[in-house]
Amino acid sequence: MPAPSNPFKAALAAQTPQIGCWLSMGEAASAEIMGTCGFDWLVIDGEHGPNDLRSIRDQLMALERSESHPVVRIPVGETWMVKQVFDAGAQTVLVPLVETAAEAGAMARACRYPPQGVRGVGSSAARASRFAQIPDYLATANDEVCMLVQVETRKGMDNIEEIAAVDGVDGVFIGPADLSADMGHLGNAAHPDVKAAIAGGIARIREAGKAPGILMMDLQGAQEALGYGAVFVAVGIDVTLLAKAARALAAQARALVD
């Protein structure tokens, strides 16, 4: 029996648009709820969400029966972090703040077993192999892992073709918030210069033969990104969705008595 297939990886390779959302609460219960909503992919955010390896593992377990594919964003591009989240059961990892092809290559190797990579062979104790229940896991896992790297600085954008061309990188995600800050437009990802950089970056990723991705906080921005050629597009964050809906409801309810 081989490693489970990765439908998200296959969709990116086919350039089939995928709509996603961010999970920043760090809770298995909310992740399970989000897994019923119909998104193609959900990001378990280990960079800005209050997560550790165990909470990431618990959210992977909560999403195991969901049609939404879990993507784990680790806090920083460290080989040991990549190894841990793959052993915990992730098949797709997003690495923030990648600026060079060398950094992207190191991450691509971190998620694959030798000789293609440097992932440690400890699968018999890992959720990834169902604790050695998958006899062919070691022989087939490399084909199903998906490595996404996040470009969010001017330096990264300058090197985006070389980053996208790295063997073992399946997609390149542009981070509008950090990119806009690095370009001198903190808090204004809609600045014309930032939008032009994003549009150009998406085109350059596609020209390199890889899938471009992005997070947009409104549907107009998402539609623009898809029009530029983005393949995997996130359209919101769970924390923001909850806060916005609750605040609106509270204001409407207060209006009944004020």
Results as ranks from 00 to 15, higher is better:
198 I>W: 06
199 A>N: 10
200 G>E: 14
201 G>V: 08
201 G>P: 02
202 I>L: 08
204 R>G: 09
204 R>I: 14
206 R>V: 14
207 E>R: 15
208 A>R: 07
209 G>W: 10
209 G>I: 08
210 K>D: 06
210 K>C: 12
211 A>E: 02
211 A>Y: 03
213 G>H: 10
213 G>W: 07
217 M>D: 04
218 D>N: 15
218 D>E: 10
218 D>S: 15
218 D>W: 07
219 L>Q: 13
221 G>C: 04
221 G>E: 04
222 A>W: 02
223 Q>V: 07
223 Q>F: 05
224 E>R: 11
224 E>D: 15
225 A>T: 01
226 L>I: 10
226 L>V: 05
227 G>Q: 11
230 A>V: 11
231 V>S: 03
231 V>N: 05
232 F>P: 00
233 V>F: 11
233 V>T: 11
235 V>S: 05
235 V>R: 08
236 G>V: 03
237 I>N: 12
238 D>G: 00
238 D>P: 01
239 V>E: 01
239 V>Q: 06
240 T>H: 04
240 T>K: 05
241 L>P: 02
244 K>A: 14
244 K>C: 06
245 A>M: 10
245 A>K: 09
246 A>L: 12
246 A>M: 12
248 A>Y: 00
249 L>G: 06
250 A>T: 12
250 A>N: 10
250 A>V: 11
